[in-house]
């Protein structure tokens, strides 16, 4: 049984198609990623699969249950970490976890020990009695993940889990996500960060304008552009500035000519020219038709 299956999943907002007939499957125990720019439909897809938004058409099954008819039973078995860390400011870290477990029916005798265990696991034990409002951004994120795991869900949905976090917090969270696979938890995450997707995900779906343009393992996606090579040119301008540009294509000579012509047109001096194997970024550019700068510009770069 798959963890998630969708057939023709579609969502319109005021005539605008946000998610366009998605067909995909997430296997049990895998870390599955949705990678795409803003407005691609990633968050809308998670909202539909978790019951926060109703599909306009199409169907989905989560853990073998019909999304349209068995939503309360689905909700008992999934955990969700939304993009915003949205626990209760007025409650302490400990009380937020206990409240979360109350909502999901964790037996009373288990709540406090489980909350203490989660605080230890997420290195928040010292902040047990601190109101959520007073935690740092990284701690808030960690606690939000802990709250989503408190009732031991079979699937964890994470929407942009490391956005806005510092290096250490982001790294710690990625380690936690990687560890969930070992525990048999299926993870469905959305991200802007190419490196994060490459590092964490067993399979990735590239989402553009509500449609999946490619779905495969990281190596599989790279293999789709294997015939292409990336030409990387390092440039400098007259006043000490430098930059690196990449051109991807099947004809290396043509790519070199293109890169050199662009540099000359822009008034840059070429310092070095290298050819390299395609990365996930190259695969993304080739398969989606979008520039990699779009991904970089939206969320502050290549990750941390």
């Amino acid at each position: 049984m798959s963890a998630i299956e969708t057939r023709g999943l579609t969502r319109y907002y005021d005539g605008l198609c946000a998610v366009d007939h998605l067909d995909f499957e997430v296997r049990r125990g895998e870390v599955f990623g949705f990678l795409g720019p803003n407005g691609a439909g990633k968050t809308t897809t998670i909202r539909m699969l978790t019951g926060l938004a109703r599909p306009t058409s199409g169907e989905a099954r989560v853990l073998g249950l019909d999304l349209a008819h068995d939503l309360p039973r689905i909700k008992r078995r999934i955990g969700v970490v939304p993009e915003a860390s949205n626990l209760y400011d007025e409650l302490t870290a400990f009380d937020n976890l206990v409240f979360s477990m109350q909502l999901y029916g964790v037996p009373r005798s288990e709540r406090k020990p489980r909350a203490a265990e989660l605080l230890e696991r997420f290195r928040l034990a010292e902040k047990r009695d601190a109101p959520f409002a007073r935690l740092s951004r990284g701690m808030k994120r960690a606690l939000t993940v802990a709250a989503a795991l408190a009732h031991r869900p079979e699937i964890l949905f994470l929407d942009e889990p490391t956005t806005g976090l510092d290096v250490a917090s982001a790294r710690g969270l990625r380690q936690t996500i990687a560890g969930l696979r070992d525990q048999g938890v299926t993870v469905f995450l959305t991200t802007h960060y190419l490196e994060e997707a490459e590092r964490l995900c067993d399979r990735i779906a590239l989402l553009v304008r509500g449609q999946i343009v490619a779905l495969d393992t990281v190596d599989g996606l790279k293999a789709q552009v294997q015939s292409a090579m990336a030409v990387e040119v390092t440039l400098e301008n007259g006043s000490g500035g430098s930059e690196t540009r990449r051109v991807v294509g099947e004809d290396v000579a043509a790519s070199v000519r293109t890169a050199l012509a662009q540099a000359e047109e822009d008034g840059w001096r070429v310092l070095a020219v290298n050819t390299i194997r395609p990365t996930l970024e190259d695969a993304f550019v080739q398969l989606t038709g979008l520039g990699a700068e779009i991904m970089r510009a939206e969320k502050g770069g290549k990750g941390l």
Partner: peptide, 14 residues
């Protein structure tokens, strides 16, 4: 506004 209502909407209650 704070997004906290979503936590309740995600919970298994009608």
């Amino acid at each position: 506004q704070t997004g906290a209502l979503e936590r309740l909407l995600l919970a298994p209650l009608r």
